[in-house]
Design a protein around this nucleic acid. Structure first.
Length: 813
DNA sequence: GACCTGCTGCGGCCTG
């Protein structure tokens, strides 16, 4: 006898819960066959809203693969499946659930293939792989509904584009496909919905507005006199952090970088040896087994604190965390809200995050972050525009997955939001590129990846190409990493080749919270043993830079404006008052209504400082641009340094900055040409091309267990870059590399906005007697890039003058 | 009166 089917109302009643209004709204929409985006800041309510709707709408029809549930992390798949199964047991007892990700065991895969479950939890990559099967349509042609969890995480990246394209395919097969996205902490919901639902599908937008109490406070340094003006490590705050951890049952301590996590872990253990075994470390370069152990420890409440990076941003929904500490700037409001949400993760419990500044100006940022977070000024995420590398990969995938005809495929791709402006000519270029390798690769059969059969359908003609393609599906590109393993066996994690290149056998380094001695390096693996020493170098991984978001930068300027107006009500600003007043006395505080620049002289030379608060990427661009413009007519040499608040140009010779500014130094006119001339834009584009070549399937990174080294991958990507530049300059992958370099590395749009603002605002050009507090932060960041238009003999002449000056009678400092 | 930067995410082969 079949089990009784419950309704969503029954299900809630059985638990003694009252459904929220937004939950009803969602399941009614699903029942009506409508798609949509559900945005809310708490997790469980969202999952049940969509899932109960799906079960109520489709539960009676027990067809295989009725619902696909996409999660961006494999680690979430098991928990999600369990949660879904619980509700399915009540509403659709005859449904089976399954999970399929890269680490699904082969026996389970076979079982899933033989007898597909009604609902499958999977990742974007695994879904694409399913779509590359010859029988994809038979398997997935009748999918009724797709739910994309954590859509805000995916939508701004090429992974999100991959999801868009997979959905476009499923929609082609089933035009009535219902698609739902679940999102949190996002500033541009309308775009999120459009990107998920395709260019033409409007769908509903549901706000799951649960009032969530949010507490953001700051650990004020005990002694501001001794608190650093620059730096980012923050170990000066060790004692207060120890006290906070001590007072709570469990804490997460977020840091911005993996090396910072390693250092803080060491420092905390040194301060509290009795916490050995209660304190853990978690970041993306540690082996999965270690991370699993840490996550389990948190779940079971065995751990007092975990020092981590964004590796624990997602996926700890069910973990009992009492306190969240954020060391250093969170850089963005969305990230801060995300991390705050790691604590008090239950309806009715407040989320709390405590900010730990690492240097003086971060106190301003902390107060600003609180204001912006409470006002929910959350950063938008923009879907990529026409990423040709993803398109090229997709065409091969679809040729594998049953094949396609050009007209139909153009229409399908065009229906995806990121390709809504794709022209037929661009599509035909991509098609020609995968068919014949384009202008420069025509002679190489391995780049003739698809071919038209007698019926005019494009397919992949070679088994070898098919295999290689399936092994390279996806858009996540990471640098070649070396495994770190015990000499006695067992993997600890991974580390950059570049870092290990500096070490020789016998050297010690700190990793995974221990001091390790390098024994030997062999086949992309570094073999280590426990070191007898207690100190070692801490590896640095070459992650990408995280600039301060516009939202947070703007809020910081607002906060400074309040201080300028004499408002020191925020505790962080009160603590910083002496320093801010010093800045005001010697120079001025930057505010939204004025631009502050400073010039002064030191033994190092002539300094020019400017504080646009546009984030470090833009400041790199601004610094190089202004240095180039200032030096255009007159050879000179500038050293550039920058941080998130401003930049500094240092020159040996005095410069008439006022005159240059009056003559249009900040003018946005001719920006593009000047940027291209002032920066090594082609080097940036070449770097971007490495990723593009990998995604487009030009570069193979090796078989699992036998990865190619970074040098190999780099060399072959570089080769393609050169060949295309010379013989195929109109190659759209090159065009993409250029535009990615400009938009993502240089943030050209933000750079232009900064120049517009700088040239419109009243300028306050101060000549302080000494480096101001704002200047100091920049001076200790000293020198990443230098730009020299100076001829060699000029430099020699200058050095001679300096020597003479130094040899002469000492002048008072 | 100053040193400590740089995240995350997935997938996959061949062994007569």
């Amino acid at each position: 006898m079949p089990a009784e089917r419950q309704t969503p109302d029954d299900w809630f009643a059985a638990r003694g819960w009252q459904p929220f209004a937004f939950q009803r709204e969602v399941w009614a929409a699903v029942a009506a066959g409508r798609s949509g985006l559900l945005h809310a800041t708490t997790g469980a309510g969202k999952t049940y809203a969509v899932w109960l709707g799906a079960l109520a709408a489709f539960g009676a029809e027990a067809a295989p693969h009725t619902v696909l549930w996409i999660t961006p992390m494999r680690a979430l798949a098991a928990d999600t499946t369990r949660a879904l199964a619980d509700a399915a047991a009540a509403l659709a007892p005859d449904w089976r659930l399954g999970a399929r990700t890269g680490d699904t065991a082969s026996a389970e895969r076979a079982r899933l293939d033989r007898k597909p479950p009604q609902a499958l939890v999977t990742t974007p990559e695994s879904l694409t792989l399913m779509l590359t099967r010859a029988d994809a349509r038979a398997q997935l042609g009748r999918v009724r509904m797709v739910v994309v969890d954590e859509w805000h995480e995916l939508m701004g990246s090429k992974r999100g584009v991959q999801v868009q394209l997979a959905l476009a395919r499923l929609r082609q097969w089933n035009p009535a496909l219902v698609v739902w996205g679940l999102s949190a902490t996002l500033g541009n919901l309308a775009t999120a919905r459009a990107a998920l639902l395709g260019a033409e599908n409007a769908g509903v937008l549901v706000q799951g507005a649960l009032p969530k109490q949010l507490l953001i406070d700051t650990l004020i340094p005990p002694s501001m006199e001794r608190f650093p003006w620059g730096g980012h490590l923050g170990t000066r705050m060790l004692e207060p952090v120890v006290a906070e951890i001590d007072a709570a049952a469990t804490s997460l301590v977020f840091t911005n970088t993996r090396s910072q996590a390693e250092l803080w872990y060491q420092a905390l253990l040194a301060a509290r040896p009795d916490w050995a075994g209660l304190l853990a470390l978690h970041h993306g370069s540690l082996d999965k087994e270690i991370r699993d152990w840490v996550e389990l420890g948190l779940k079971e409440g065995r751990l007092k604190a975990v020092v981590c990076t964004s590796s624990l941003d997602l996926g700890v929904d069910f973990l009992p965390v009492e306190r969240v500490l954020q060391i250093g700037s969170a850089k963005g409001v969305a990230r801060l809200l995300q991390r705050a949400g790691r604590s008090g993760h239950a309806p009715g419990r407040p989320s709390r995050v405590t900010l730990v500044p690492t240097q003086a100006l971060e106190l301003v940022e902390a107060a600003a972050a609180r204001q912006a977070a409470l006002a929910r000024q959350v950063e938008p995420r923009e879907p990529p525009t026409k990423p040709f590398d993803v398109l090229v990969q997709h065409l091969v995938s679809m040729a594998l997955g049953g094949g396609f005809t050009p007209d139909a495929m153009y229409a399908e791709v065009h229906s995806a939001y990121s390709f809504r402006a794709l022209t037929r000519a661009e599509f035909d270029w991509a098609l020609g590129f995968v068919e014949g390798g384009g202008l420069s690769l025509a002679a190489y059969p391995e780049y003739h990846r698809i071919a038209r059969d007698e019926a005019g359908v494009f397919r992949v003609p070679s088994v070898a190409i098919a295999r290689r393609h399936r092994m390279s599906v996806g858009t996540i590109v990471s640098d070649a990493m070396m495994s770190v393993s015990w000499l006695s066996g067992g993997r600890i994690g991974s580390i950059e080749e570049r870092f290990l290149a500096y070490l020789k056998p016998g050297d010690c380094f700190v990793f995974a919270g221990r001091v390790l001695e390098l024994v030997r390096v062999q086949a992309m693996t570094a073999y280590v043993r426990k070191a007898t020493k207690t100190r070692g170098v801490v590896p640095q991984w070459g992650g990408s830079k995280m600039p301060l978001s516009s939202e947070l930068a703007g809020a910081s300027l607002q906060m400074l404006a309040r201080a300028h107006a004499g408002d020191f009500a925020e505790p962080e600003i009160a603590a910083l008052r002496p320093l801010l007043e010093l800045q005001e006395r010697w120079s001025a505080l930057p505010t939204p209504d004025r631009l502050v620049c400073e010039t002064f002289r030191s033994r190092e030379g002539h300094h020019f400082l400017c504080y646009p608060f546009a984030g470090r990427m833009v400041h790199i661009g601004l610094g190089s641009l202004l240095a180039w413009r200032a030096a255009r007519d007159r050879p000179g040499s500038f050293s550039i340094s920058m941080n998130d608040y401003g930049f500094e140009l240092l020159s040996a010779e005095p410069v008439d900055w006022r005159g240059l500014i009056d003559a249009g130094l900040f003018s946005p006119a001719g920006l593009m040409d000047d940027v291209l001339a002032s920066l090594n834009a082609s080097e940036l584009a070449r770097r971007r091309f490495r990723e593009i070549a990998r995604i487009a399937g030009l570069v193979f990174t090796g078989y699992p267990g036998a990865p190619h080294s970074a040098r190999q991958v780099q060399a072959s990507a570089g080769l393609f870059y050169e060949v295309f530049r010379q013989h195929d300059a109109a190659n759209l992958l090159l065009v993409q590399a250029d535009s990615e370099a400009l938009e993502q590395e240089l943030e050209l749009g933000r750079l232009r906005a900064a120049l517009d603002r700088m040239s419109a605002l009243p300028l306050l050009l101060a000549a302080p007697p000494r480096p101001t507090p704002f200047a100091f932060a920049l001076m200790v960041e000293r020198l990443r890039e230098s730009l020299s238009t100076e001829k060699l003999h000029d430099r020699v002449a200058r050095m001679l003058r300096e020597l003479e000056a130094a040899a002469g009678p000492a002048s008072p400092a």
